[in-house]
Design a protein around this nucleic acid. Sequence first.
DNA 1: AAGTCCAGCAACCGCGTCGCA
DNA 2: ATGCGACGCGGTTGCTGGACT
Length: 259
Amino acid sequence: MGRSPCCEKAHTNKGAWTKEEDERLVAYIKAHGEGCWRSLPKAAGLLRCGKSCRLRWINYLRPDLKRGNFTEEEDELIIKLHSLLGNKWSLIAGRLPGRTDNEIKNYWNTHIKRKLLSRGLDPHTHRPLNSPTFASTPEQQQQQQQQQSEPSTAPTTAAAAAAATVDDDEKHRYLDLNLDLSISLPHYSPEESPSSSAEPLSTTVATTATIGVAAAAYTKAICLCYNLGFENEQCRCQNIQNPHAFRYIRALEEEKVID
DNA sequence: AAGTCCAGCAACCGCGTCGCA
DNA sequence: ATGCGACGCGGTTGCTGGACT
């Protein structure tokens, strides 16, 4: 048993794309837009499976791709984001305009891993290779990785554990980042009861690793639509009264403020 | 010049998740 | 509530071209 194949493999091309195939795909998407990947190959006259078309478009043909070498700033941003998010390449790519998850993943595996090792840092944990808390067994490594990358549903406990593992250097290094992406119920510190907070109740989405860092300075939550630039269009997050509504904590755009 | 090695990157594969009937 | 199809993600594979012998 097993799932049915996404396409009829006997009649599909594999391997490198030809110029003609690229042109067909671009022309079709320009005319009809993205989506319906399963039916796209047939409609566009391509002997490819839908997944292959999607990958080709997203990773190579999209007009907004930056291409070219990564800058030093991008390097450092990727390292910071990876230390907070783990191997969530699509999330990392979301913070790097014009870069794809595949591109970043490859770049990480070929360049940045080596860069971190040359700095004496473990690429998985971002901690010094000779650190006493460095996980030496696969089980420990898995545990550490889970603590770093796993979205938490209980920030008060998981965040405390994660925060305890963040040393002072890291705290200072990543103060400018707040990418809290775990979904959880609202949490208030004893000094900050819901009634005293000016913020509407909202469920924040947060990386557990940053909670300890960001806890001192309460971060204003904004919606994902805002981050994507749709805040003035279909976004209704500003009107959400539901205490269980999901919102993303503002990240990176320090200079942008909405109220 | 020919053969081998290896880094880099594009593409594939399998699985998880989501939305819809 | 459930099953199924489609999509998206992350890990892996394999091709290509440059460096080296």
